[in-house]
Simulated assay, not measured.
Amino acid sequence: MNKKIHLQDIGTKDYKSTWEYQEELFKSIVDVKIQNRRDETHLETPNYFLFVEHPHVYTLGKSGDMSNLLLSEKQLEAKGATFYKINRGGDITYHGPGQIVGYPILDLENFFTDIHKYLRFLEEAIILTLAEYNIIGVRSEGETGVWIDVGTPFARKICAMGVRASRWVTMHGFALNVNADLGYFDNIIPCGIKGKAVTSMHVELGQEVNEHEVKEKILNHFAVLFEAQFF
């Protein structure tokens, strides 16, 4: 089992180009798995982890409802934002500057074959990272992602998640609001959940947060949880 993960921080990149790149990496892993099965070989499958920041974009998952986007095409254009229907789970979300987006493209057969456990580990990596800033992140039953003050009238989401998996290979991932402009969330019903607010580390702490430092902390926790090594 290959527990090494190739880390790539690709900076600011258009959503569509990044999605296509994810698909390429995803296919390269699946192709090795198909070859192994066909030829009864034991070639190692690679694992990848992408960090990226997207220009303003709204994405809608497979089970998402278009009515959760509250903007017309012209209004999207005026806001300098794009929109894509994509092949991950979950409903609608926003990506933009000041948000750390992580896309683990892993062969889970190198780690464990349990999608539920995979999602919980993604959440845990974020929860442990937030704890280092004295932000108490928690899970909300039946709602993937990381929240604050669940069970109170002030419940708010700080990290959205949506993944796709096929042949135990994952893609898509998480989006943690660090210094993001939360005004862009006003144009959607985030994750299709009415009446729930969103927040960011910046808002919770009352100051701008070092994004490079946050990424380092996420990777440290991810490596421990998945017993993995980044290179």
Rank of each mutant, 00 (worst) to 15 (best):
Asp186Phe: 04
Glu73Trp: 05
Ile92Tyr: 03
Glu53Ile: 03
Gly89Thr: 07
Cys159Asn: 05
Ile29Lys: 00
Gln229Val: 14
Gly61Met: 07
Gly90Val: 04
Glu44Val: 08
Asp65His: 12
Glu77Ala: 14
Lys16Cys: 06
Asp114Gly: 12
Leu69Trp: 01
Asp107Pro: 03
Phe231Asn: 12
Ala165Ile: 12
Gly102Ile: 02
Glu213Val: 15
Ala131Phe: 09
Ile136His: 15
Pro153Tyr: 14
Ile10Trp: 09
Ile189Cys: 05
Gln75Leu: 08
Glu143Gln: 13
Glu44Ser: 08
Arg164Tyr: 10
Gly61Leu: 07
Leu50Asn: 03
Thr12Cys: 15
Pro55Ser: 11
Leu106Tyr: 01
Glu53Asp: 10
Thr170Tyr: 01
Leu25Asp: 03
Pro97Tyr: 12
Val203Trp: 07
Glu24Thr: 15
Leu76Tyr: 06
Arg38Gly: 09
Tyr133Asp: 02
His172Tyr: 04
Asn220Pro: 01
Glu124Tyr: 06
Gly11Ile: 11
Ile127Arg: 08
His202Phe: 13
Asp9Leu: 07
Ile115Gln: 08
Glu216Asp: 14
Tyr21Glu: 10
Ala180Asn: 07
Tyr48Ser: 03
Leu60Thr: 02
Gly90Arg: 06
Tyr184Val: 12
Asn110Gly: 10
Tyr103Ile: 02
Lys33Val: 04
Val150Ala: 13
Phe226Trp: 02
Tyr94Ala: 04
Asn47Trp: 02
Lys194Leu: 12
Ala223Asp: 03
Val138Met: 12
Leu60His: 02
Ile92Arg: 01
Val178Thr: 03
Val146Pro: 01
Trp147Thr: 05
His221Leu: 07
Phe185Arg: 00
Val57Asn: 00
Met161Thr: 12
His172Arg: 05
Glu132Phe: 11
Val178Ile: 09
Gln99Glu: 09
Leu205Trp: 08
Thr199Cys: 10
Val57Thr: 09
Asp114Asn: 13
Val146Asp: 00
Leu225His: 02
Gly64Cys: 06
Thr18His: 05
Thr41Ser: 14
Ile126Met: 11
His212Cys: 11
Glu141His: 12
Glu216Asn: 10
Phe112Val: 07
Glu123Pro: 03
Leu108Gly: 01
Ser140Pro: 06
Gly64Thr: 01
Lys215Glu: 06
Tyr58Ser: 01
Asn134Ala: 14
Gln8Ile: 10
Ala125Tyr: 00
Glu24Arg: 14
Gly142Arg: 12
Arg88His: 09
Lys33Asp: 03
Lys33Trp: 03
Thr59His: 01
Gly102Pro: 00
Ile136Cys: 10
Ile10Cys: 08
Leu70Ile: 11
Arg156Ser: 14
Thr59Leu: 01
Ser17Asn: 12
Lys85Ala: 09
Gln99Asn: 07
Ala223Val: 05
Met66Cys: 08
Ile115Leu: 15
Ala165Gly: 08
Thr12His: 11
Gly98Gln: 08
Tyr15Lys: 04
Glu53Tyr: 05
Asn68Pro: 06
Pro190Glu: 04
Asp31Trp: 10
Lys33Thr: 06
Asn220Ile: 08
Lys62Pro: 04
Asp14Leu: 08
Ser140Asp: 14
Leu50Asp: 02
His212Val: 15
Ser140Tyr: 11
Val32Ser: 01
Gln8Arg: 13
Gln229Ser: 14
Pro104Tyr: 02
Met66Lys: 13
Asp14Lys: 06
Gln229Ile: 15
Phe121Trp: 07
Ser166Met: 14
Asp39Asn: 13
